[in-house]
């Protein structure tokens, strides 16, 4: 690990100011950044810890919307997002207990790992990512591998999830890392069904629009039987070919629909 300056701020305003420094980088739970630093693959001049900002932590629900503060840990979401059980369930399977007690939703979304779970929940819910500067619709937020709509120094303060009628997240674990080899989030709303897929695409999380259309007319596992996912653009690596991932998308979508009831 290279030397860096470390500051832990107590308010959003202080964080925004601190991040203006040259080479400064926000630090959430550090579950990706700290291992990266340990391998000396990143050399930030300054890390600004967001975990001490009380206004960024918490889970609340009202008017059919679940709000999660940007620095809320996965463990807290798993415990407290009772108004949105599928999201609580998703959070409860991220990493291991140590990861869930440190990792935050804002950190996960800002990092946008193509195999992370939260992007599927956020895109599959059509959630809104709230920052210190603006509100970003999930459909506009994810821009590819480790790329988001966030500007330099912009901080995720909250994520607002419209609570669906039914939803489920089904993930198939990569055997080594236990990240999602493929994960599918299905959510049924009054105005239609959303299906978001993580882990599978070279461009990060995406919506499977054919399945959304089919499930919007019939919310049953069989509704996707006639569909197929093209392996073009899907990830091929040690753990699975693009064809395998394409197959898993369909299997997991069926399972998510069945589990959502």
């Amino acid at each position: 690990m290279y030397d860096f300056e470390f500051v832990k701020v107590g308010s959003l305003a202080e964080a925004v100011a601190a991040l203006k420094a040259e080479g400064a980088q926000a630090l959430g739970g550090g579950q990706t950044l700290i291992p990266t630093l340990k391998q000396r693959l990143a050399q930030p001049a300054k890390l600004v810890s967001l975990t001490g900002i009380a206004e960024l932590v918490g889970v609340s629900a009202s008017d059919g919307v679940l709000s999660v503060g940007g620095a809320t840990t996965h463990a807290q979401v798993a415990r407290e997002a009772t108004a949105y059980p599928a999201l609580a369930e998703l959070a409860s399977h991220i990493g291991d207990p140590a990861v869930r007690n440190r990792g935050t939703i804002g950190g996960s979304l800002a990092n946008d790992d193509p195999a992370a779970d939260y992007p599927a929940g956020v895109l599959g819910s059509g959630a809104t990512v709230v920052t210190n500067a603006r509100e970003i619709a999930a459909d506009d937020f994810f821009r590819g591998l480790f790329e988001t709509a966030l500007e330099e120094g912009e901080i995720i303060t909250a994520v607002r999830f419209p609570i669906p009628q039914k939803a489920s997240y089904q993930r198939f674990a990569q055997p080594a890392s236990r990240f999602a080899l493929t994960g599918v989030f299905v959510a049924q709303y009054a105005d239609g069904v959303r299906v978001a897929v993580t882990g599978a695409s070279e461009n990060g999380v995406f919506r499977w629009s054919d399945a959304e259309a089919a499930l919007s007319s019939s919310f049953a596992p069989e509704a996707v039987d006639g569909l197929s996912v093209s392996p073009d653009g899907l990830i091929g690596d040690l753990h699975g070919t693009p064809e395998y991932r394409a197959h898993l998308v369909k299997v997991l979508t069926r399972r998510a629909v069945a589990a959502a009831g």
């Binding site: 055997p175 080594a176 890392s177 990240f179 040690l238 753990h239």
Partner: peptide, 24 residues
Amino acid sequence: ALLEHAVYDANGQLLSGSYMDYAM
């Protein structure tokens, strides 16, 4: 039998060089 594999690519890079890819 089920999990572990040290995999090299054709250039001799160890693809499963960490626990992210080497399944214990």
